[in-house]
């Protein structure tokens, strides 16, 4: 999948300030709103949906990565934002570790297959020792873009 084309560089928040789940989700949605990806009303609704989903079970899938996600029909296409925390975020992840990279996914109902493709992609990176290390070492939005491009080229 062309993940590097799916994630806009401006939607990568490389310096998350929050140290817990709720705060970083708010930060990432604030960026999406600033970038004109959604209205304030949509952002509020998406935030509520993301948190409701987290309460059903964490989306911290392990090895430093979380994939908070929500279905939302107010957007036409899948929207993906990436967040990165240097010290890591308390996320109640399945492996008990801190989360350093967050992939936030908003999925219109008709795009469920695209969401599953993103889930496969993110999980494959998380699982792969080499790619996981690259991701954990990324510090800037540019780093992330280059890593996503490299992974595609070597796929």
């Amino acid at each position: 999948m062309h993940f590097s084309k799916l994630v806009k560089k401006k939607n990568i928040v490389a310096d998350l300030q929050g140290t817990e789940r709720e705060g970083v989700l708010r930060e990432m949605l604030a960026r999406l709103r600033e970038n004109g990806e959604m209205s304030e009303k949509d952002a509020d609704q998406i935030f509520s949906g993301l948190m409701a989903r987290e309460r059903l079970g964490t989306t911290g899938i392990g090895r430093g990565i979380a994939i908070p996600h929500v279905r939302f029909d107010g957007l036409k296409d899948l929207l993906v934002a990436v967040g990165r925390s240097g010290p890591g975020v308390d996320y109640a992840a399945v492996d008990g570790g801190k989360v350093k990279v967050v992939f936030l996914v908003v999925t219109p109902a008709a795009k469920q297959d695209d969401y599953l493709a993103v889930l496969r992609y993110v999980s494959s990176i998380a699982r792969d020792d080499y790619n996981n290390k690259l991701l954990m070492g990324a510090q800037t939005a540019k780093d992330f873009v280059e890593i996503f491009q490299d992974i595609e080229e070597n796929d």
């Binding site: 090895r63 493709a117 496969r120 699982r127």
Partner: peptide, 12 residues
Amino acid sequence: KSMLDLTARAAA
């Protein structure tokens, strides 16, 4: 028994 092995497959 591996979350990531299952989500990497993400069967529809």
